[in-house]
């Protein structure tokens, strides 16, 4: 039992995280400072929130490339409704979440019911949603958001973990992200959603014969992805204090990287929400640690790229050893 647990990908990733983390703590001055590390985690939170539904989507052998654009679009919706239309910030936020879910439902609907591969659909909507955001905002930076809203990404919670001055330092956004990961884990491991999702990724035809409504399930997952983007957009906009159409570029690749490093195979079949969380933490810690060590940003990108390749190769090797079914 314990032996089986030790052999899992999650365990390998956990060991890797501990190694990277202790390596930086030992060799890089100023790295091991919990309040600082948690401040950094605010920049991973949105990536993480989006990576959870992305894990499910990739498990079905799908992909959602439009997440960055949906975040930009939903962010612009908040900025416009609050700044130009004079809505209250919270109704503007609700509208943004709705727009996100709608965008996701559009992706899911087209790919499931019109049978267009999700790669193609989301590649198209990646440009479409970005263009919409650009047009709606007329390419302006929309700022002037209230302090209460900014708290989403500035605020800290969990008072029992306080720094030297008695201030809590766990960002609300990071705590929210962990909650979403928790919900994702329950859905993946303890509910029919996860079972059906893995079944679809394993063998879609078999899933259809097993009376799973594959199309509906997929549409649901893309809608959930859009919903997560809508929520993420609030935190993203609060973090940078401005809504802009050209923000969150490349977010889709970062979220996909977390999922892939986390051991979910891009060809579908098995998804690990825990793995995605570990992937996110490894990438985040690696990036911050390398910068703290004085490595220039241009080389940091290279190290993160190497990490993704190594993880992908290992995943395939492990899958092969287990007879290809994983």
């Amino acid at each position: 039992m314990i032996k089986r647990m030790l052999a899992t990908r999650e365990f390998a990733l956990f060991v890797l995280l501990i190694l990277v983390f202790s390596g930086f703590s030992l060799f890089v001055d100023g790295f091991l400072d919990w309040p600082d590390l948690f401040r950094q985690s605010r920049y991973w939170a949105v990536m993480g929130m989006i990576a959870v539904p992305m894990t499910f989507i990739i498990t079905t052998a799908g992909i959602d490339l439009s997440v960055g654009s949906i975040v930009a679009l939903a962010g612009v919706v908040v900025g416009l409704l609050y700044g130009d239309a004079g809505w209250s910030i919270w109704s503007a936020s609700a509208a943004a979440i709705f727009v996100g879910a709608l965008a996701g439902a559009f992706n899911g609907g087209i790919s499931s019911y019109l049978r267009v591969p999700p790669l193609v659909v989301t590649l198209a909507t990646m440009a479409l949603f970005r263009g919409l955001a650009m047009g709606l905002s007329r390419a302006r930076s929309l700022g002037g958001l209230p302090q209460g809203f900014r708290w989403l990404s500035n605020g800290n919670v969990l008072g029992f973990l306080a720094d030297a001055n008695g201030q809590p330092y766990v960002p609300f956004s990071f705590a929210m992200m962990l909650l979403i990961f928790g919900a994702g884990w329950v859905l993946m491991r303890k509910s029919w959603v996860g079972r059906f999702t893995e079944c679809v990724g394993e063998n879609e035809t078999a899933a259809v014969f097993a009376a799973i409504d594959v199309r509906w399930l997929k549409a649901l997952l893309y809608t959930a992805s859009g919903l997560a983007c809508g929520v993420g957009a609030l935190f993203h906009t609060a973090l940078y204090a401005t809504a802009k159409a050209d923000t969150a570029v490349g977010l889709e690749l970062e979220a996909i990287a977390c999922v892939v490093v986390g051991g979910t195979r891009i060809s579908g079949g098995r998804g690990s929400v825990t793995g995605t969380l570990l992937g996110l933490l490894i990438i985040g810690v690696l990036r911050h640690g390398l910068l703290m060590a004085g490595i220039r940003q241009q080389y940091v990108v290279i190290y993160v790229g190497i990490l993704v390749i190594v993880a992908a190769v290992l995943n395939e090797r492990i899958a092969l050893r287990k007879g290809g079914v994983a």
Binding site: K3, L6, A7, F11, A12, L13, V15, L16, L19, V20, G23, F24, F27, L290, A293, G294, I295, Y299, Y303, I306, L307, V310, A311, L314, R317, I318, R321
Partner: peptide, 23 residues
């Protein structure tokens, strides 16, 4: 199980190789 060590090794390499580039 055996493969769990590969990423670790690689990252030790990555870490040690970034040490000298720092200065």
């Amino acid at each position: 199980m055996k493969f769990a060590w590969i990423p670790s090794l690689l990252f030790l390499v990555a870490l040690t190789s970034c040490g000298p580039t720092e200065p």
